[in-house]
Amino acid sequence: MTQLAGADALAALDPVFAQLAVGAGHNLWGLTHLTTREKAFICLTADLCHPHLDRPLAMHVQMALINGVDPESIRELYRHLAPYVGYPILVTAFQRLTELGLAQAEDDQPVEPTPLTGPLARAVRTLEDIDPGLATFTEDQLAQRWGRPHLSARERALASLVVDVFYQTLGPSLRLHAELARSAGATDETLRDLLRGLAEFGMPRAWAAAEALLPRPGEGA
């Protein structure tokens, strides 16, 4: 069974809550259709969405590092999520990484936008019919992220789905990120595990997202 970082500290706060929290943590870390990195990224993304940048973030950074996630991947996750959760919260989050002693950034190269293709390009074209200016900004933000190194396309898509669940953006944004995840190898079972893991951070949100995202038994994707 995975050893959860910070369990002793939770017990010092409240022993009964600690038992409940550890049980919920083991649910997430025991899921079989997500990689260890993806489980760590779920927790780190959840911290930005709440935001929970104090002890929860410290615990989740420690869990990520213990399980072999390199510091640059954590930084890249934050870079990717900036326009999804808001740039201002990432300023504080990067400050917290410094306070926690995370290694300094290795990647300091100028950002090179990558032209959008596939679902991302289609999403921008759809948005152009609604608001061309917003479409231009969105295209710029997406082009700066989805072709970068340090995270896979599947990891980026799953992290973006976490934001959709937290913010309950269960329409076009959810469908776009689910399509991107599936095109990068995610299956219905991957998405089911994602929502089961996210239930730790809010069952009602996970329930609503499951209604919007998952096929019912016997139905196709």
Rank of each mutant, 00 (worst) to 15 (best):
A24N: 11
N27T: 14
W29Y: 13
W29R: 08
T32M: 03
H33L: 01
L34Q: 05
T35M: 09
T35K: 02
R37V: 12
A40W: 01
C43D: 09
T45D: 01
A46E: 07
D47F: 03
C49R: 07
H50A: 13
P51N: 07
H52G: 13
R55H: 14
R55Y: 12
R55Q: 15
A58N: 07
M59C: 05
V61T: 03
L65G: 11
I66R: 15
N67K: 10
N67A: 09
V69N: 03
V69T: 07
D70P: 05
D70M: 12
P71C: 05
P71I: 01
S73Q: 10
R75E: 06
R75I: 09
E76G: 00
L77H: 00
L77D: 03
R79H: 08
L81E: 00
A82C: 11
P83Y: 04
V85L: 04
V85G: 00
G86S: 14
P88D: 08
L90V: 12
V91T: 15
Q95M: 11
R96L: 04
R96N: 06
E99Y: 10
G101W: 10
A103S: 14
A105L: 01
E106L: 13
E106H: 08
E106M: 12
D107H: 09
D107K: 12
D108R: 15
D108N: 15
